[in-house]
Design a protein around this nucleic acid. Sequence first.
DNA 1: GGTTGCCGGTTTGTCCGACAATCATACGAT
DNA 2: ATCGTATGATTGTCGGACAAACCGGCAACC
Lengths: 248, 248
Amino acid sequence: MSVEFAKVLMEPAYRKVATAIGARILSRALREGERLPPETELARQFGVNRSTVREALRELESRGLLQRRPGSKLMSVSRPPQAAIAQGVRHALLLHDVSVRDVWEALTMLEPPLAQIAARVRTTADLECIRAAAQAFAAHNAVTGQAVQHTAEVFRCIGRATHNPVLGLAQEPLLQLLEPSLRVMIDQVPQARARIATAHRRLVEALEAQDEAAAHSWMGRHIKDFSRGYQLAGIGLETHVTADADTP
Amino acid sequence: MSVEFAKVLMEPAYRKVATAIGARILSRALREGERLPPETELARQFGVNRSTVREALRELESRGLLQRRPGSKLMSVSRPPQAAIAQGVRHALLLHDVSVRDVWEALTMLEPPLAQIAARVRTTADLECIRAAAQAFAAHNAVTGQAVQHTAEVFRCIGRATHNPVLGLAQEPLLQLLEPSLRVMIDQVPQARARIATAHRRLVEALEAQDEAAAHSWMGRHIKDFSRGYQLAGIGLETHVTADADTP
DNA sequence: GGTTGCCGGTTTGTCCGACAATCATACGAT
DNA sequence: ATCGTATGATTGTCGGACAAACCGGCAACC
């Protein structure tokens, strides 16, 4: 027997309330879209003050488990939208001082097999989405900001085409983190736009033909091209990724 | 010109306060470990009530940007710990009804190159950590829960050995999601423990020798073995991953 | 008929004030 | 020197309060 005592844990009430509601959501007792009772009612049920309930709601809200539907005052249950989660991951990685190399390395690992899977399981609608995004890049890449956005959008469409939410959620923060440096790179390397457009064309062709090997290969080159672009733009791979505007 | 008006956005005060403090943290104006002023002081500075400040703090706290250091009442700035972020991602994926296949597919893509990188850049300390984890699995795998924990721990050590926070953060939620099904699998497939132990041995050998190809290959087999285990255990790959206890 | 204006009830956002519990610190007693 | 205590600061929680926004319905009006 140990003479050590377990650390007594005093959980504040607002946290208990938050975990209680959160557990209900996670266990599907509260289903997606369902509306929560008003705050006063929750306060009555939990036997705490409304202020306490509100603190709990803020916590769940920031995790994306609750959101307020436009035009409704009552909170409703929601599956956390990808954007919310990705932002959390992005902030975490920002504060952990990840370098451009770290993000790029992850993309190198992630994207080619992702494209390969997309080539296998994509639907016609997916293909149309990807084609539209590539088209958008080709047509409107004069403004650097738009070029970056469309580049990311192509990745997102390909991610969705895998029909695997895990992959989409994994790549989203990486895209967001790379955005600022990508902006600089596209801005400073003249041939970047053309090379990206070419990669898009090849990728679309491979996805059309459901040619897994080609999709894998071209995505690999696409990502690898980024590192060359960084070199040309004078962006060191050890540069820490920087915070970007949160509300573009 | 369109006659449409932009949707007027009414941001509540607690959100403004939260984003204000959050921006300071992200911009490094508030550095890691730094302590925030007391709530009353914050309320005075922002010109709002303390209750409002508290709601904002709950939000930042749940994102891991703030935490209370044990024994201190004042909030202090913190980089979000991996566990917190991973839990957020896990909850999101749970609510998005990801299947075992989805998670396994992501691991298939992620882990082999991850092991490869680890083989390249691992330090002696990393190796020691991995070896210890594998050793722990070999020695204490009788209880299913421990076996699962140690299996995950080996992955985590290998992830850390890449010295790329992005990869560690990417794999953590996957490990957590796989845990419940892995528990069932290890429990029901007699030869699972031995096969995992073998994989660990091979991986340690490859990492010792810094043999990238072998590390990649053995990790691939290790992951692939999981799917065979699922088959033997009668776990359909289309099964949705289930919520697990949050506080093990 | 469709639009407009008004009314009452509900709910949130925000504020105020209050108090117990906890912790830090200093100070005094043994 | 160790212990106990007073004191102040800070959080957790509470109760109540009020304005603003929103909803539904109903009357009035073109």
